[in-house]
Amino acid sequence: MSLSRLFLTDFRNHADASLDVAPGFVLLSGPNGAGKTNILEAVSLLTPGRGLRRAPLSEMARQDGEGGFAVAARLDDGTDIGTGTLSTAPERRRVRINGAPASVNALSERLSVLWLTPAMDRLFTDSAGARRRFLDRLVLALEPGHARHSARYEAAMRARNKLIAEPDGADPAWLQALEAGMAEHGEPLAAARRRTVDALAAAIAASPDGEFPRAGLSLEGGDEGDLAAALKANRGRDAAAGRATAGPHRQDLVVTHLEKSQAAALGSTGEQKALLIGTILAHADLVTERRGQPPILLLDEVAAHLDPDRRTALFERLAGRGQVWMTATESGLFVGIGDATRFRVERGVHAA
């Protein structure tokens, strides 16, 4: 599935923008600060989650606007989807599908969207939480129901953390209900992550050598077995720590450079970038195989950080793989790409 048109209203620096796009490459060029990444962020909001910047919704509304924003799109099958906020409720996200109100999680049934941004270059040296969020985006593209389990697990965990911190002690019945909720959603959450890691690791290992090195993937932590029982046994320790010390929120994605048999975090900046790109490309192939359609890829300033050989290899790998949105400060960085929808972003969005 891909977009055929994207509409932005009071989103970031775009007061009113409309982009007609085709399947394949969608190339955005223009100076820093013109709003190229804002357009990618808008597309990323057409799936569950907080988008590629993970920013508060209130920050997405245009500063000189009325306080709310809207992002809408028409898919190539004619479906209309949209999301946004009202000025009266700047942190309440609203979703519509074909004009009717819908849940945020319903978006994952329509589109799968993956992205790479410059901030993700340090993923392998970042926190375990950052790698879990990256992994959850990969899982969501394969299993749309993952968003519901993730949201409900997090809600139950936050409520339990608050409850065990009460100085007069927690209500045992309420605590047990919250722990049952964490187990109900946490166990399928962890299982979905493992299925994705195992499938992706196998796909990468079987892939041929090329310009992008192969990554070894594994998942550590979160092996509590009966999660409800583990949470009950840990109540005293969790009360002292102020948080749950068992559960899938403690899982970590471990990445290695297969050819070098070394942790990805020990590689050079260029090697880490190449490992990340190779992983995303392999995952896009896996999504295409499993869901029968490729995901939309959002690649922010990726070409600028690759040497010419890897840039050419990337363009060749991406050709014919569904809709790929890319940004660059100079259109010359897109040399080698043939047919594409091209825009110049500078004081507005203009066909290039």
Rank of each mutant, 00 (worst) to 15 (best):
174 W>D: 02
75 L>G: 08
54 R>Y: 03
207 S>P: 09
157 M>F: 09
17 A>F: 06
98 N>R: 10
269 T>V: 12
34 A>H: 05
204 I>Y: 05
107 L>A: 00
317 R>L: 02
22 A>L: 11
25 F>G: 04
227 L>A: 07
330 E>N: 14
313 A>T: 10
32 N>A: 11
322 G>N: 05
350 H>Y: 14
114 L>N: 01
164 I>E: 01
281 L>H: 12
2 S>C: 15
69 F>T: 09
73 A>G: 09
254 V>L: 09
36 K>V: 11
9 T>I: 11
164 I>P: 08
333 L>V: 06
227 L>E: 02
340 A>R: 13
203 A>Q: 04
306 L>Q: 02
277 I>K: 03
285 D>Q: 07
108 S>P: 08
214 R>A: 11
51 G>E: 00
287 V>D: 05
189 L>G: 00
120 M>A: 03
51 G>A: 09
19 L>K: 07
288 T>Y: 00
31 P>I: 12
82 G>C: 07
170 A>F: 13
120 M>Q: 14
219 L>D: 04
124 F>L: 15
28 L>P: 03
112 S>D: 00
28 L>M: 10
334 F>T: 01
136 D>H: 05
293 Q>R: 10
201 A>C: 09
286 L>F: 14
29 S>V: 09
107 L>C: 00
35 G>P: 01
95 V>A: 11
328 A>C: 08
94 R>N: 02
294 P>T: 06
321 R>G: 13
218 S>K: 05
161 N>M: 05
230 A>F: 07
236 G>V: 05
250 R>K: 13
74 R>T: 10
307 D>P: 01
157 M>H: 02
138 L>N: 01
284 A>S: 12
219 L>M: 07
206 A>S: 15
193 R>K: 11
59 E>N: 06
172 P>H: 12
290 R>P: 09
186 G>R: 01
60 M>K: 00
165 A>W: 02
109 E>W: 02
132 R>E: 14
13 N>V: 07
211 E>F: 00
175 L>P: 04
254 V>D: 04
255 V>T: 15
352 A>L: 08
7 F>S: 12
169 G>N: 09
102 A>D: 07
179 E>M: 04
111 L>V: 03
68 G>D: 00
248 P>I: 01
245 T>V: 15
343 F>R: 09
76 D>S: 12
3 L>P: 00
171 D>A: 07
290 R>V: 14
197 V>T: 15
117 T>R: 04
48 P>Q: 07
106 A>G: 11
148 R>N: 13
279 T>V: 08
328 A>Q: 09
93 R>E: 06
88 T>D: 14
207 S>E: 11
330 E>H: 15
112 S>R: 03
164 I>V: 10
247 G>K: 03
131 R>Y: 13
352 A>V: 02
308 P>Q: 00
347 R>L: 09
190 A>F: 05
157 M>A: 14
264 A>T: 08
168 D>V: 02
17 A>H: 07
10 D>K: 13
9 T>L: 11
16 D>Y: 01
321 R>F: 06
234 N>K: 11
34 A>M: 04
